[in-house]
Design a protein around this nucleic acid. Structure first.
Lengths: 340, 340
DNA sequence: CTGTTAGCGCTTTCAC
DNA sequence: GTGAAAGCGCTAACAG
């Protein structure tokens, strides 16, 4: 008995007493194999513990059965949740997921310069990642289908929320509570952040729509993150006339705002209301009111969108998922008679 | 002029007027190519925009240059941070990262039953993932190097913190503040959670070491997560004699504890101190005292460990990274004269 | 240092 | 329904 370490298709064919061609067909569920032959092959394969060589299969067939997922900030909830959802759909469909994490500018340049995924994947999903013209050009070189997950992309089919709508909902919530002096702590400067300008613009628009004059003092900008947001909030507290509510670019940043308020003895929501965007799992623990988005839904839909393309099926190329306010304890009616 | 869509090594060789073998050598930085020939090949490759077919290369060479990362709970900070760090090292070394996310029991069974990464990778990194004997057996079938990241594995080389030590440090911190009645809110029941029993056992040991009798009432168990922890804390508040401090299994859970305390009007740390483990980015925003671990360091080291093995280099197979208490505002001296 | 020669392990026409 | 044969595009001896 041979002690073959790795069993090949030839072994299976021999064991089943058929040609390699037939064995291959049987294993791939291709047409043109009699049921009895097929089961004989399958049985032999199982007995020999056969596993196809994916490389040989790919080389011969020309398809990779793999998808690249391009993502940054995987250490943040939003991105992890997104990738998890994408992976789930893709692996369920028999695709491998090649992960490319590009956090630094250096990673990023390197990725687009080298295109390490080239010839390795049938498609790529870009997660909440605004890409430059140059980067788009490079990506095109890969000559595969591209889908954007969680960011409205002008260049590619996408699945995302409507950032403007989310901001609008937040503002409507606050305005309904009587707030007029509403600040926003926003992330920017970071070209890596998604939706950076969208949310800020929407803030101005929504204010205007409500007949509230935009006050530049109330729009503070900082890097993405809770600590930067905490610092930005200090600036807000330095104002002669304080805001009665703060909208944060994301929940993490809202938590930063809340820390500053807490440390300064400002009561939330009695003195100042705070609202975030995302519905981060920890928002609930912080009693933070927020505009909820379903990240896993966006991940799922974007993966399905790519799969549809790969199957040659037409699909809606611009999908927008819902957002809505989740009211918790960090927002309340404006306090007109407060003394500070 | 030919309109070749995809340029092959043969094209490059022809353009550089060398054999395919030489072209291959030049492209792979192999020895035995004169500088001038090499540069001629490289130039031709660049001009033709040549990209090797990874499948063909793998088929011919027998190496995959890919690593599988097996992970669950990618939506949690710990896991995302870990994978990000791993990816960074691996991609820097020229490896592709195949991501396998197994969150549900179903995913998990499927993964180990099918072993979709088989024959596709040179090694696998298992992220904080206690595997069963059966699963280990299946994994062995892949016949590749395996490393555990962020969980002490009896079966594989690993990089992780010393969970017992972390708990001990937390307890030492509390005891130094005068606490004797220290509760623990711990995650368990979930076979998917890492270090689940380790931390609980360490809690008992560390108490004993400090001469504090273990009180079963003070050890409450729940599923992993902030909300379960919040509920578990309610149970604690139902006790006749309250604890003066709570150690949570993780920062997320500590935040759950804090919510219950806050909602119940229990002051932190005046009435009850709270300490977590991890140093989650949001712990800082919640002013949570915690035992810090560097997840990215563990990710980096485990990837480097695997790379060493793949290079045939010997390396330390059990690496333990440091932890230490980061004091913030959620812990304070025990309040002996408190009235509740 | 460079070229020749075999494959790597499959899939896929094309016949039968 | 099944088999024979021809590659897929590259790497790795082995010669020279």
């Amino acid at each position: 008995v041979g002690e073959r370490v790795v069993v090949s298709l030839a072994d299976v064919a021999r064991a089943a007493d058929v040609s390699m061609a037939t064995a291959s067909r049987a294993l791939n569920n291709a047409y043109g194999v009699s049921p009895v032959t097929r089961s004989r092959v399958l049985e032999a394969a199982r007995r020999l513990d056969f596993v196809v060589s994916p490389d040989a299969a790919r080389l011969a067939s020309g398809t990779t059965n793999a998808v690249a997922v391009l993502v940054q900030h995987l250490d943040r909830w939003y991105f992890g949740e997104m990738v998890a959802a994408i992976e789930s759909i893709l692996s369920g469909a028999g695709y491998d997921v090649l992960l490319y994490h590009v956090n630094t500018q250096e990673d990023r340049s390197k990725f687009f310069a080298d295109l390490p995924a080239r010839r390795k994947v049938d498609g790529v999903i870009v997660v909440a990642f605004p890409i430059s013209d140059y980067e788009r050009e490079r990506l095109e070189l890969m000559d595969v289908r591209i889908v954007a997950a969680g960011g409205q992309s002008v260049a590619y089919p996408y699945v995302s929320i409507d950032d403007g709508r989310a901001v609008q909902q937040a503002l409507e919530h606050l305005i309904r509570l009587g707030h007029r002096r509403i600040a926003m702590v926003t992330a920017s400067g970071d070209t890596l952040a998604p939706a950076e300008t969208g949310r800020t613009d929407a803030y101005r628009d929504a204010l205007e729509e409500a007949g509230i004059a935009f006050d530049p003092e109330l729009l503070v900008t900082c890097e993405w993150g809770g600590v930067p947001a905490a610092e930005a909030t200090e600036r807000l507290l330095g104002l002669k006339q304080l805001p009665t509510a703060i909208l944060a670019h994301s929940d993490e940043m809202a938590l930063g705002c809340m820390r500053t308020l807490r440390r300064s003895g400002v009561r939330v929501p009695e003195d100042i209301s705070v609202i975030g965007i995302d519905d981060h799992p920890l928002a609930e623990l912080a009693d933070l009111t927020t505009v909820r988005q379903s990240v896993s839904e966006q991940g799922r839909l974007s993966a399905e969108l790519l799969l549809a393309f790969l199957d040659g099926v037409d699909a809606e190329t611009e999908q927008v998922t819902n957002t809505y306010v989740v009211t918790r304890r960090s927002t309340g009616p404006v306090n007109t008679s407060r003394a500070r």
